[in-house]
Simulated scan of single mutants.
Amino acid sequence: MRLLAAILLSLVLAAPASAHVEVRPTVARPGDTVELTFKVPNERADAATTGLELFLPPGVPAKVAPHPGWTSTDRGGGDIAFAPDTPAQAIGPGRAQEFKVTLGPLPKADRIVFKALQTYADGEVVRWIQATGPDDERPAAILDLSGNGAPEGDENGAWPLYLGGVLGLLIVIVGVAVTRRRRSVM
């Protein structure tokens, strides 16, 4: 039973590690013009997110959609800064907001890496800029243009989450069955 509890606890604690600036969809084709949604979660419990700096590919036309309560500033070269109009509009602890940008036509490339800087009310800046592999501590959002992305109908590549949920459920079922069997033997 202790093993079951340890496994469930590790599954629950592993989930927050995936929080980072994300882009959706995660797959597109070169030449397309797409509306991208950048999800910005606040993973801190003690400070609000008060700024986002998003780096789009230079030279690719972009149109930033208005985001209620936030002002966007084009700093040139694909650098877009977002800031809340008032402290009440900041992204509070445990919350997330989505920012929309229409981008395209997309360049002929295997992928686009969207680096982002997330600023918190206490001045901390988290740099979501790593794009070397799945084990990056601070991964950048990546749009796959190679045609090798998630299968059609699974644009978000969520199958690992589903598999984890199924495995977790199986572990609970086995744990309950073992407990009942032990009680019936006694």
Rank of each mutant, 00 (worst) to 15 (best):
D74Y: 03
L4S: 10
Y162I: 12
L161A: 12
A17E: 10
A81Y: 03
Q118T: 12
A116Y: 00
R24A: 12
F55H: 11
A28G: 05
D79W: 12
E98Y: 09
E22R: 10
G76C: 07
S184W: 07
L3W: 12
F55L: 14
P160Q: 02
E155F: 09
H20Y: 09
V64G: 02
G149Y: 00
G69W: 07
Q118F: 07
Q89A: 15
R111L: 11
E35V: 14
T33S: 09
A141W: 00
L13S: 10
K115F: 10
L9H: 05
I173K: 00
E155Q: 11
A158N: 10
L143V: 03
P93V: 07
A150C: 02
G147K: 00
V40R: 02
F38G: 01
R180M: 11
M1T: 13
S10I: 14
M186T: 14
A96T: 12
T119W: 01
P107R: 00
A158P: 01
Q97D: 13
Q130W: 04
F99V: 04
G164E: 02
E22F: 04
K108Q: 13
R95C: 06
R24C: 04
E22C: 06
L103D: 12
V27I: 06
P66T: 07
A109G: 05
A17V: 15
G153F: 06
G133C: 05
F114C: 07
I129S: 13
V172L: 09
T179I: 13
D154T: 02
G149S: 01
P93G: 08
A5G: 10
G149P: 03
V176W: 01
P41R: 03
V64L: 08
R182T: 09
A121I: 02
A116M: 03
S184Q: 12
P139D: 05
W128F: 11
R95V: 14
T86Q: 10
V185L: 15
A62K: 07
P87F: 02
A65L: 13
L161M: 11
A81S: 10
D144A: 02
L11K: 08
A65E: 15
L167P: 00
L106W: 03
L13R: 08
P25G: 03
P66C: 07
R111Q: 13
K100G: 03
T33M: 06
V172K: 03
K115V: 15
P151N: 00
P139W: 07
A90M: 04
V21C: 01
A15L: 15
P61D: 06
